[in-house]
Design a protein around this nucleic acid. Structure first.
Lengths: 102, 102
DNA sequence: TTTGTAGTTCTAATATCGTAAAACATTAAA
DNA sequence: TTTAATGTTTTACGATATTAGAACTACAAA
């Protein structure tokens, strides 16, 4: 694996993004990413197995919510705030504001 | 069927709401409800079977997104904007603003 | 009472999801 | 070249989702 697929900004779909965010574990990841950008998978606070985490990160990435940058043996994940803001202005901020109290 | 279950405001869950909104047909319903409050099921613009519509309306209602009022033989559906705004301030408005262009 | 209308529930088929163990790939360190 | 670290892919399993036909319920109108 040398390159990871990221959907282009123009292909971001709201239902797909909402679906990616509808899982409690993934919503939690997004919450953490908002506070700690450039998080690695291992740096994430979780209870699930690492293969499960890998799957969740893939789901977020393929929905266009996150960007994954490969650096050596690690992957650093960040929110695609620029693209999300361009395509769905105000949505991410509104979500993060209410996502604090699950 | 005399009474329909509506979760109380305090039990509204963000993941459950995001899941309810992640289906294209249901997101479309919500978009229509925002423009035309108090819509009946039959008054909805859809392509799916009526049993499917009934299921989608149930999903939205049980997630706390909509309120269903029985009036004779019809059900009138509206957004629970008051409760959603109280529990997740700004979220519904932000969603509706970006949900125009799917 | 009969007929029609509006929507629900049952049932079933197909699909997708969340989870994780096991095996694998890639890179870095010893 | 081993060994360790980090994450992916494969595979599998049970749970849940989407869809719709068919039967059914509730109410209203004729």
């Amino acid at each position: 694996m040398r390159e990871l697929y990221h959907p282009p900004r123009s292909k971001l779909s709201l239902p797909a993004i909402l679906h990616a965010l509808s899982d409690p574990t993934r919503l939690d990841i997004v919450r953490q990413l908002a506070q700690t950008p450039d998080l690695s998978m291992g740096g994430c606070d979780t209870t699930v197995a690492k293969s499960t985490m890998s799957h969740h990160f893939k789901t977020l990435r393929e929905a266009g919510v996150t960007r994954t940058r490969i650096d050596g043996v690690q992957r650093f994940i960040s929110l695609r705030k620029d693209d999300l803001d361009a395509r769905f202005p105000g949505f991410l901020d509104a979500l993060l504001r209410v996502a604090g109290d699950k």
